[in-house]
Amino acid sequence: MSENNSIIKVRGLVKKYNGVEAVRGVSFDVYSGEIFGFLGPNGAGKTTTINILCTLLGYDSGSVAVNGFDCRKSSHEVRSSIGLVFQEITLDNQLTAYENLKFHSYMYNMERKTTKIRIEELLEVVGLTARRNDLVREFSGGMKRRLEVARGLLHRPKVLFLDEPTLGLDPQTRKHVWSFIEKTRKKFGNTVFMTTHYMEEADVCGRVAIIDNGKIIACDSPEELKKSMKGETIYLKTADNERAARELKEKFKLEAKVIDGGLSFNVAGGEKFIPRLFEGMGVEINSISLKRPSLEDVFIHLTGREIREETASPRSRTRGPGGPRGMGRGRG
């Protein structure tokens, strides 16, 4: 894809909070019609970037354009061309699903006739037609999310922004939301820009930018990023990690990283390597596992640490980690 195809163009973006750089010279393009993901730990600068793109936040230097409009000079045009789904729920609990959508249509100055048709159409797509006249406070977290996506698409934006769209949802609901984001993209042809710190979610994207400490450290399709890892990842727990790491270096010329009280390294042809490892090592091996590279491994490889649940911004509530422990979105 070429440059002229980009619907979002960011060059040398810098944003400081009280003199500290939260976003440190970020440049990227998002192409029309793709799902683009911003992957990184909390506090990496994802939400800051998305807020700048949505004109909710100013910036210190660089240039940002969405749909050909400068985010600073033409914020109105930018706002008209985008739809937003925030990290936290931004629906009115005391209005019905239909009323929430209707409110939105008035705020975006939509024509009355098309509004009605589109609301019905979107409610159908998100599977909330039967619940259209129910108050939103009676909805589950997943239903609220779906309604928000529907609302974000109501005015037919060129770009749909999703800030951690499945944060705090259980794995099943999460899958449901993804399939439905993909479904609406196919139907309406909008570009999707999303931030996430879930690896599985990044896998849904056409291209992923990995962001850490306010900088983009890699940007490519998930497949290419994984291919760059070369081989498989082996995770090893031994009686003496230090000695094991030394032996790996001397006998197999492998650089291992200490992670979670074990060792992790990459090796081509991992399955065949394991027997050789057992023969060659002088240290007792307690456990061993082999993994095809995931985006998580790419991240670990690039940054030397895992994407962890770090302290979130004070606004956002408890962040459920992936898996069944995931918390409800609260504030029902």
Partner: peptide, 8 residues
């Protein structure tokens, strides 16, 4: 926020 991001 829903109101603030609207083009008004």
């Amino acid at each position: 926020r829903e109101m603030l991001v609207a083009p008004v």
